[in-house]
Design a protein around this nucleic acid. Sequence first.
DNA 1: CGCGCGCTTGACTAACTTCAAAGATGGTGG
DNA 2: CCACCATCTTTGAAGTTAGTCAAGCGCGCG
Lengths: 231, 231
Amino acid sequence: MLATVLHPETAAAGCLAAEVLAAARDDGGLSALDRIGSVITLRRDRALFREGDSAKDCHKVLTGALRSCRLLPDGRRHIGEFLLPGDFIGLDLDATRRFTAEAVSDATLMRYPQVAVERLIQQQPKLGKRLLAEVWNGLSAAQAQLLLLGRKNAVERVASFLLLMAQRAGDGDHFCLPMTRNDIADHLGLTTETVSRTFGQLKSQGVIRLAASSQVVLRDRVELEALAEAA
Amino acid sequence: MLATVLHPETAAAGCLAAEVLAAARDDGGLSALDRIGSVITLRRDRALFREGDSAKDCHKVLTGALRSCRLLPDGRRHIGEFLLPGDFIGLDLDATRRFTAEAVSDATLMRYPQVAVERLIQQQPKLGKRLLAEVWNGLSAAQAQLLLLGRKNAVERVASFLLLMAQRAGDGDHFCLPMTRNDIADHLGLTTETVSRTFGQLKSQGVIRLAASSQVVLRDRVELEALAEAA
DNA sequence: CGCGCGCTTGACTAACTTCAAAGATGGTGG
DNA sequence: CCACCATCTTTGAAGTTAGTCAAGCGCGCG
């Protein structure tokens, strides 16, 4: 899920795949973006944009967290991904939003007008490569999620989710889940109750500890990885 | 799921999102690709490549069909997508394959060496735009599949699948499913039996007719769309 | 014609959902 | 600073959907 700003002229002529991947590892000119962005704040549960809106900016999460979600006509909800600090939103080619983006917690974001980003990319090819790399990351994550939703059971889903969140939170064994159990359920294709019961099960097995319902401590990462059945 | 050849230099400097989308509608220089490709054939159930292989070419399906799949350690399988004539495979940035691609039926493909495609893209910016548009289509399809796997029931999954296949087969009401019920099940996160029973249910409701087990006739597309709960 | 593979069907089971209610948590206002 | 209230989480019991196991069918190929 990436950039309306990600156009092919993005990078200098002649660059190779390896170079794009390399760009993903350094700043890639990302800081230059900030000069053309404006900071906005978003209260919990407010929408940044909704499915069907026209897309004229892209955003980067600075603090807090967002969710990208889609609804079925009868109200069933699916959360495609959670967006944490550093993540980009709306970095794709569509003129129309394909999902709704809402704040999971109070959040601050940087807003970049599409046209300004396009201009900047032309001046700084490295930036384009960096943003393109972000797109590939998103695609890769989506594929892992397909496997999870298609073939994993409740324990495996929750275990996979916890490991991913731990990694995104900076790879410590102690981290915070800014979203509710219901949000997690809608992301993992489960119900609130099943998520809660699964947390309880992992807790009683000694794999995790909950300092508070949103404060997770990994007590046995190896066991958690085994439970996640990482393919 | 797209191109190891899709590098940012792909398009001419200054192109806009609208232009990329426009390129997707015409040939976009796609025919020029064929001059650098070689035709290969693949027998049913043979792998084009496997997860973990290094990626040095990309391919386009000419005839037949393929599946992209991933396995869990205990053998559970998930099929990410079916690749039909005209679809590109391996059009992404990764040096390593993230999934296995196998022939669902005997197939012929065009193979394009990565480096040759990169060279060609530099000469024909339009081609790069066209291929990038393919990537967005794939991303969009993956998102729809997340909703399906996360929140739809068996009937909705099968109905959605049939509508999509009908559309990809050229929008007639009569089409062929080259893959087995088991393949469909692994794509929809169900079992062979559930897929079979759901086909039977749709048949007895008069929504579809099966000329043969792989020959589907849509008898009531409107009803099928209602069953798919298209969001 | 017979064999094998894939498809279908049936009976039973398991996993997850649904429904219901009690127990935490945290934010707000008195 | 504490009490209250809404919201979120947890837990329990019953229900439902899809999975599992098992067997028969039918098409297509040799």
